[in-house]
């Protein structure tokens, strides 16, 4: 079997540049630094994973990239332009699927098009997105009728329907059982390969990061700074039993200070 490299696929993603991004929260008058001068360059159509201990500020970083919050210092750019707010070309999939419970799966997925007034002209994209995540038969179901994996698929479809240039994944598989998780990791890779968007994944699962990403950025404890960067050149689709991945995993664990567990 010939494994194809990511670069063989169409690339419609955006570039992302972080320059000396720092952020702090105000906690009862006390400044709490969360991000410490993070600089990062993500190429068009690249799949980058941010890995770090929980509470290190990974999700904060994603909110900055999404334009939901603004950094205390530093700049974030896509295609050389500063990020000034949320934009449908940069869509987030959160750990919690947060589907709107009063909308059916279909109209949850249609939300982005509806919000931008594109629903009338691009209606068929909703069905396409549902097919892409394998939820065609559940278009009329309400979120409370879905399993965790199906809900997260619906959330993914809701993001993909907008044809994002940057897909921001905030531990999207964190709440799923391990079997569903393995299946969905494979699905994420094939979605990414087919659509060519740039993907930025936050996770604290080393294996997941290495299975999905071409580059793994290891973050330190809070305030987070980049402590290591590991390039993962293994071709897609990857195999869990790949001894090279195991080797990279060891390397990442060393950077996380978990060498003793190997």
């Amino acid at each position: 079997m010939v494994a194809a490299a990511a670069s063989d696929y169409p690339v419609s993603g955006t570039t992302l540049t972080l320059r000396e991004v720092s952020h702090r929260f105000d906690l009862e008058g006390q400044p709490l630094p969360v991000l410490d001068r993070i600089s990062l360059q993500v190429g068009r159509g690249e799949f980058v994973a941010l890995l770090g201990p929980s509470g290190c500020g990974k999700s904060t970083l994603l909110r900055l990239v999404a334009g939901l919050d603004f950094p205390s210092a530093g700049t974030l750019l896509t295609e050389g332009k500063a990020i000034e707010g949320p934009d449908p070309s940069r869509v987030v999939v959160f750990q919690d699927p947060t589907l709107y419970p009063w909308r059916t799966v279909w109209s949850n997925v249609a939300l982005g098009l509806e919000a931008r007034g594109l629903l009338r002209t691009h209606r068929e994209r909703v069905a396409d997105a549902l097919r892409l995540v394998g939820l065609t038969g559940f278009a009329n179901a309400y979120p409370h009728q879905l399993s965790g994996g199906m809900a997260q698929r619906a959330a993914l479809a809701r993001a993909l329907v907008n044809d994002p240039k940057l897909l921001i994944l905030d531990e999207p598989l964190g709440q799923l059982d391990s079997l569903t998780r393995i299946t969905m990791q494979g699905e994420l890779v094939s979605l990414w390969q087919r659509s060519g968007f740039t993907a930025l994944l936050v996770t604290h699962d080393v294996e997941e990061a290495l299975f999905l990403a071409g580059r793994v950025i290891v973050l330190s404890q809070r305030p987070a700074h980049i402590s290591a960067e590991i390039v993962n050149p293994r071709p897609y689709p990857r195999h869990r039993g790949d001894p090279h991945l195991a080797q990279l995993r060891h390397e990442v664990l060393v950077h996380l200070g978990l060498d003793a567990t190997w």
Binding site: A66, L68, P86, V91, V92, L111, A115, R116
Partner: peptide, 10 residues
């Protein structure tokens, strides 16, 4: 989070 998601979707 309902607002965040809707905002990122435009």
């Amino acid at each position: 989070a309902y607002y965040d998601i809707a905002r990122t979707l435009g």
